[in-house]
């Protein structure tokens, strides 16, 4: 079981390593969206500091949505998704492995870039720490819930836009708790409450989402 899970993850990591172009696109998208805000709003540090948590978090959800449509679509097109579903191992592990791989490939780089963006937005050091922590807890949620949307819209016309429509409302709690943690830190009330709620939402997504993605994959492959 664990072997299967690790094989799914290793396979996606290797494929991503062979196609670095796609990977870089998503990272630059994140940086660019965030960098556009000061240009649109103005450079006052106080204002930027106020909007930084929300801007970074919204950009993170958009960046994850950019890469999600291809989570299963490539494997669907070349037939390897069929083969993986015909494995004796349960499909829920496949769904979990794909979501974990998506987070490793597209989520972790966001954590690494986020401090730089925090500096751009004049965030103090401890707020940057909370921002990274909130993204560390929150981006896996984006991958887990996003996998459900990717599985549901597999092979549909306009699947990418549809995926956005389906999944963005589900991202709301992650966005609120994630950006709220940094806000609370800036307001001096401490980020613990928000971070624990975010953690609880993460655990719930980890338990529920892979089952629904697996069921959705079976439905979409019929």
């Amino acid at each position: 079981m664990l072997g299967f899970l690790l094989t799914v993850i290793r396979r996606d990591l290797l494929l991503a390593a062979r196609r670095r172009g796609d990977w870089l696109t998503a990272q630059f998208f994140f940086v660019m969206v965030v960098s556009l805000f000061p240009l649109g709003i103005g450079p006052e540090p106080e204002l930027l500091k106020r909007i930084a948590p929300g801007v970074v978090w919204v950009a993170a959800t958009l960046a994850s949505l950019l890469s999600l449509p291809r989570l299963f679509a490539d494997d669907h097109r070349d037939g390897s998704l069929e083969q993986m579903l015909l494995s004796p191992e349960p499909a829920v592990l496949l769904a979990l492995g794909k979501a974990v791989a998506h987070w490793l490939i597209y989520g972790i780089p966001l954590l690494i870039v986020a401090p730089v963006l925090g500096i751009q937005f004049a965030l103090p050091a401890e707020a940057i720490g909370v921002l990274v922590l909130s993204l560390a807890l929150g981006t896996p949620i984006l991958s887990l819930l996003g996998a459900v949307g990717a599985a549901l819209t597999l092979g549909l016309r306009g699947g990418g836009v549809l995926l956005t429509l389906l999944i963005l409302p589900l991202y709301v709690p992650a966005l609120i708790f994630g950006a709220g943690a940094v806000d609370a830190m800036l307001a001096g009330t401490g980020a613990e409450a928000n971070l624990s709620l975010l953690g609880a939402f993460f655990v719930l997504s980890l338990i529920v989402a892979p089952w629904i993605s697996a069921a959705a994959l079976r439905v979409s492959m019929e």
Binding site: L145, V148, P169, L170, F201, A209, I212, V219
Partner: peptide
Amino acid sequence: LLALIGAINVPIIYFSV
């Protein structure tokens, strides 16, 4: 399936808002 995951999410969304 989407309705189901939405229904699980509705109380959480309501609480988070």
